[in-house]
């Protein structure tokens, strides 16, 4: 204890100097804004650099955890989105077709699932039977024919896309009314094949192909596409490649077309077959 005292006494000058200098610098830093800011900045720079390094290293160990969290947050956000709610945006309008005295209803729907890469492509729409969707209704977009409603649930419906090997509709050449059957060959999502057009029909590349209206599903004259090229096949028919006017890769809104007089027409046609 004594030696400690002696030691302190011997270095009292240095200790006192350090104490007073520290006191002065504390005063300096605490009372002068510039010096304070400079010191804080300096220490933040140092600590910031090391925190960044530590964080960079640490984040590798928590990548899985981070991914899980992000995925969870994504789902949460998606659930919170407005789209989740069934805001009743159904736009229903009645078009009086004065020429044939037919009535079609149009319902606006959004595509919530779509594919073009498979051989049997389907779409999913955000409207179901609560909104008046029934199987076998036509689905069109502003640009052209899209498909046929296949399955319907309470709030959703599935659509047999035109890009489906099972899909077949009746189509005609707009300018001369020759009709044939239109289907997809499973190859390119931008082209479909129109068959059964007789060789004596006068066709040119670029002619418009529209729905024929012979089926009970589509109204007449809905745009399908234009003739890309054609070749003779099987002696008496053309095989026409049709470039689709609707781009199936950027579909968003579609209209579901209901034919009010369909039941009447079908029951009448059934009697013929009996």
């Amino acid at each position: 204890m004594r030696s400690l005292f002696d030691f302190l006494l011997r270095i009292h000058f240095l200790v006192l100097f350090i104490l007073m200098e520290v006191l002065s610098i504390i005063l300096l830093v605490n009372n002068n804004n510039f010096q304070q800011a400079a010191l804080v900045n300096f220490s933040r720079q140092i600590s910031g650099r090391y925190y960044t390094r530590a964080a960079n290293l640490k984040q590798y160990f928590s990548l899985a955890e981070q991914n899980r969290k992000l995925a969870e947050e994504n789902t949460q956000l998606l659930n919170a989105l407005e789209l989740k709610y069934k805001t009743d945006r159904t736009i229903t309008q009645i078009i009086n077709d004065t020429i044939y005295n037919k009535q079609y209803t149009y319902i606006l729907a959004q595509i919530i699932n779509n594919s073009v890469n498979n051989r049997h492509n389907y779409l999913t729409l955000n409207k179901g039977y609560l909104q008046g969707i029934k199987p076998e209704m036509a689905v069109i977009s502003q640009d052209g024919v899209i498909g046929i409603v296949k399955g319907v649930s309470k709030n959703y419906s599935t659509v047999l896309s035109m890009l489906n090997l099972d899909y077949k509709i009746s189509a005609k050449i707009k300018k001369n009314q020759y009709f044939g059957s239109l289907s997809w060959d499973g190859d390119d999502y931008r082209t479909v094949i129109l068959n059964e057009i007789p060789l004596h029909a006068d066709i040119l590349v670029g002619d418009s192909i529209v729905t024929s209206g012979y089926s009970s599903i589509y109204p007449e004259g809905i745009m399908i596409g234009t003739i890309l090229d054609f070749e003779e096949k099987g002696g008496s028919f053309y095989e026409i490649r049709v470039s689709l006017s609707a781009d199936f890769k950027k579909l968003y809104h579609v209209y579901i077309v209901g034919n009010i007089m369909r039941e009447e027409r079908l029951s009448l046609e059934e009697k013929l077959e009996e």
Binding site: E21, S24, N32
Partner: peptide
């Protein structure tokens, strides 16, 4: 400028001996 001159003077007084 609290502390600025104090620290300089203390330093100088320390060096004087």
């Amino acid at each position: 400028t609290l502390g600025m001159h104090s620290s300089a003077c203390v330093f100088m007084a320390f060096l004087r001996p």
